[in-house]
Computed example of a mutant assay.
Amino acid sequence: MILIPLVIAVLFLLPPLIFVLITLVVCMLAAWEWGQLAGFTSRPQRIWLAIMCGFLLALMMLSVPTYSRAVDLPLMGCSLWLSLAWWLAALLLVLFYPQSAAVWRHSRSLRLLFGLLTIVPFFWGMLALRQCGYVENHFTGAWWLLYVMLLVWGVDSGAYMFGKLFGKHKLAPKVSPGKTWEGLIGGLMTSALIAWLFGHYAPLNIVPVTLLVCSVIAALASVLGDLVESMFKREAGIKDSGRLIPGHGGILDRIDSLTAAVPVFACMMLLVF
């Protein structure tokens, strides 16, 4: 009730530059929390990790014109394609867990790389969608981002409700014992309803079949993003990624689904289609 109005205000009321800076801060906080998942337990190490992540993103951001179809830039396009490859690889890590953990369990470098592959494309996906159609209509990109967020929130909420009511068959018991196949189906049904309503009533200029395909893939990616963070938290022996949001855990606990859904949706809509 508190966060959703704030998110909508950030999307529609703030100029792109301020939006980018807020996204940058969110990514730095996510990097701070990922440090714990990567095995950096001391506070100074994690602070430096957050600072270096912010510095890297800021340097990359300077190469992007203020208002442009930014996805045409090689840096952004490559980041989105790389995200698609990373989440396909992450799917294999989840499917073969805990055997797959033998590859990266004792390697800080690999876990740090996985964090960069999660956070950096998420940053670019947010920028790509926010700048989509900006020249013609300043709010087009805001609508697209709101759509993806509603889609992810719908999957999460639907999966929770259907899982509580009907859940019997575990989805990934070795990674996240609470998730069920019934919950996944319920989450996808909820996101499909949101996609249908949004497609009818929101000003989105896109072929319905394209929207459906992109939405289904993004919804599945959001579930994968949640499972991947759960896998890394399980290996790190922690329940929440942080305590920045009272009652919700850390930043990563709130955006884990979005870190997968946003860049994958942006890649599918802006590059594949």
Rank of each mutant, 00 (worst) to 15 (best):
160 Y>V: 06
81 W>D: 00
159 A>I: 09
54 G>I: 07
65 P>T: 09
128 A>L: 01
98 P>L: 13
191 S>E: 01
95 L>N: 09
61 M>N: 12
174 K>R: 14
62 L>D: 09
160 Y>E: 07
136 E>A: 13
186 G>D: 05
53 C>A: 13
172 A>V: 11
153 W>V: 02
62 L>K: 15
188 L>W: 01
186 G>H: 06
190 T>R: 03
110 L>Q: 03
97 Y>G: 05
104 W>P: 07
187 G>Q: 05
159 A>D: 02
90 A>W: 10
138 H>E: 11
151 L>M: 14
170 K>R: 14
176 S>Q: 10
103 V>S: 02
93 L>S: 08
56 L>G: 02
51 I>Q: 05
170 K>E: 02
112 L>W: 08
132 C>R: 07
110 L>V: 14
104 W>H: 12
121 P>C: 03
138 H>V: 10
58 A>Q: 13
66 T>W: 10
179 K>D: 02
186 G>N: 04
179 K>L: 08
160 Y>G: 02
92 L>K: 09
168 K>F: 03
106 H>Y: 14
142 A>T: 03
78 C>H: 14
67 Y>T: 11
145 L>A: 08
93 L>I: 11
175 V>Q: 08
53 C>Y: 02
84 L>V: 14
55 F>R: 00
154 G>R: 07
163 G>P: 04
148 V>Y: 08
93 L>E: 07
159 A>F: 05
154 G>L: 09
95 L>R: 15
51 I>W: 10
149 M>G: 11
70 A>W: 01
176 S>I: 11
118 T>Y: 10
129 L>F: 01
79 S>L: 13
172 A>P: 07
97 Y>P: 07
147 Y>S: 09
111 R>K: 15
77 G>I: 04
151 L>I: 06
122 F>C: 02
94 V>C: 12
116 L>T: 03
97 Y>H: 14
75 L>R: 02
133 G>W: 08
98 P>W: 12
158 G>I: 05
185 I>C: 06
71 V>Q: 03
102 A>S: 13
66 T>R: 14
64 V>H: 09
150 L>C: 15
52 M>A: 14
147 Y>H: 12
160 Y>I: 05
182 E>V: 10
67 Y>D: 04
94 V>P: 05
143 W>P: 01
110 L>K: 06
